[in-house]
Design a protein around this nucleic acid. Structure first.
Lengths: 337, 337
DNA sequence: GTTATCACTTTAAACGATTAAAGCAAATGA
DNA sequence: TCATTTGCTTTAATCGTTTAAAGTGATAAC
């Protein structure tokens, strides 16, 4: 295919390239291009089906109107939600989103960032993964505009938008307590990620504030490499305590799904035998025989805030924004009253 | 941030830009660059943390090593699966994927294609939406390499990779018949899309081949704008037939999920009261009280085939490939024996 | 009749890379 | 000794845009 450029239009009409550029960029008026040429040029562009070469444009303008997005795992419900929200918000400002999934792997994360930077994205929105601190500091040294979402490293000052994980976990735990539960278990991953630690903290402080003596066994620490095994073993343990647990709170949707599968398997009835509450949404929850009570993250607001913060940074407004969003507790029927 | 370019390295070392380019592109040997300069240039690139500007490179090379992907809806399980597969396969060939979601809207679809072309992608992988024929013929006229996946327009000859929808539906229906079902309903969208018509055809021909007299009411045509209402009404109709249905086959996972939700609501037991079978996978199926028997699309194979076909096209091998893949029937417990 | 102004249009230098082709010493060959 | 080859390096054009700055011919002002 012969690619049509400004030159082709110029030749076709019989004017210089500059005129064509002016007209097609809406500068006909200001540059005082004659009506006649304006007319002809527009017609020729249409006729020849001209498509501006963004690559050339970007090179000249030193700006690509592209933002890079790296999510942790495209299979998470959260990731698709946030991606949609970010794309929609970016489009409003005429930005395109270049997208990648790190699959929770620090090396992939680093590589993706590299690819995106080489493609000259104007800025980055990142869901950082475990052990990716060095990447973050690298970006700061390189003065590349970026915003972290969902997670952050408290030891590194950054712009970030995330859920108030502490409060969400606290609220959910408190809810369970108020429903009359006395033995509340919490499943979480073994991790160094701050946002998950915050969930632990919320759980523990809610127990403490309500004068419930914490039992070590309640906090089930799951190794992500042995998720299913650990969860099943954890559930067995919790049911076999002298005082068996009456509620299980899962720190993520994947943990909850695996937990519910096992509860199905051992024929434990929710909520009769055990109450269940989960972080995050999953379409799977709706099909469970009783809708699962869960915490919903405000992905729309998160995506919008991330894009708008990033655009401010890109436009050289040196801002510092740490936004903490609240979650909604969606009451289903998985918690006994 | 001061962006480091070849020029900066050249000045730092005290050589010309050309030498730097040769060295950093692994052409040191063939261009006979002295060991000393090779050394110095590499060191300087490292020291200054040089990052090649892909935009400039692409402009010069007239090739971006990028492929554009447009899926129908990022919320579909199918979309995330295929995206992952395509990204992985593309990476092997050192291509990046630029990604967008049309949300089943023809205008968005057209706009996304435009954006991608303007960004000079080397080729496109598309899940076409209803009424997007004109876009496809436009691409053909413009001689832009592209491959359709999941869906295609039989009236337009294209390279495409899709499921053998006819056979999949036939196989599933036959399975239900062999399980002893006599009144089998089929839920499908009202659409002009060929791939969904093929599912109808598979269903109908399986009935015919097994000498089952088809009842008009069995084929429930769902308006996608009133999905939930239509499904609920359809299910009511099917249960109130003189000879009520004993099996429901859903043409997509979204249809199935909504159907199952309603079955839950009216307390119809699967598979005791009704057998259920669905196209596509959904993590929701695993949490349903009995795992849902469903057809699994080979997304991995599909993604790989799409990328490899596209790369052949890009490399000027004018090929014509129509690949029809077979699905797996995953037996759960949602069909009575 | 010269000069200034006006209404347009063109020229040409970027942007950051690639890469033929040309350049230039020193070494080799006749 | 002069020409050629060798080994290495630089020059400069190019990709498709944008955009100051300069150019041009006609009309107006004095």
């Amino acid at each position: 295919m012969k690619k049509i450029g400004l030159k082709d239009i110029a030749e076709h009409v019989g004017v210089s390239i500059a005129l064509v550029s002016y007209v097609l960029n809406g500068q006909a008026e200001i540059k005082q291009v004659s009506k006649e040429n304006t007319q002809k040029i527009k017609a020729a562009a249409q006729l020849l089906n001209y498509r501006p070469n963004q690559i050339a444009k970007s090179l000249k303008m030193l700006k690509t109107y592209t933002i890079g997005l790296v999510v942790a795992d495209i299979n998470y419900r959260f990731s698709t939600g946030i991606t949609r929200a970010i794309e929609a918000e970016a489009k409003k400002a005429n930005y395109t989103v270049l997208f990648g999934s790190s699959n929770e792997n620090a090396d992939s994360f680093a590589e993706l960032i590299n690819v995106l930077i080489n493609r000259q994205v104007d800025g980055l929105i990142l869901v950082p993964v475990e052990d990716s601190q060095s990447q973050i500091t690298m970006l700061q040294k390189a003065e590349i505009p970026f915003v972290l979402i969902d997670r952050n490293f408290p030891e590194i000052p950054t712009n970030h938008i995330a859920l108030n994980n502490y409060r969400a976990a606290y609220t959910a735990t408190e809810y369970l307590i108020k429903q009359g539960h006395k033995q509340i278990a919490f499943f979480n991953y073994i991790t160094t990620m701050f946002h998950l630690h915050e969930r632990n903290r919320g759980y523990l402080e809610a127990l403490r504030d309500h004068h419930i003596n914490f039992n070590q066994h309640w906090l089930q620490q799951i190794n992500s490499n042995n998720r299913i095994g650990d969860i099943e073993q954890g559930i067995d343990t919790l049911f076999n305590l002298k005082e068996p647990c009456d509620a299980m709170f899962f720190a993520t949707d994947t943990l909850a799904i695996n937990g519910l599968k096992y509860l199905n398997k051992i024929k434990a009835k929710v909520p009769q035998d055990i109450s269940v509450l989960s972080f995050d949404e999953s379409e799977a929850f709706e099909l469970f025989y009783c809708p699962v009570t869960h915490l919903r993250q405000p992905v729309e607001a998160m995506g919008q805030a991330a894009v708008n913060t990033l655009l401010e940074l890109i436009n050289h407004n040196k801002i510092s924004k740490q936004l903490s969003l609240e979650s909604d507790l969606i009451i289903g029927q998985s918690c006994r009253e």
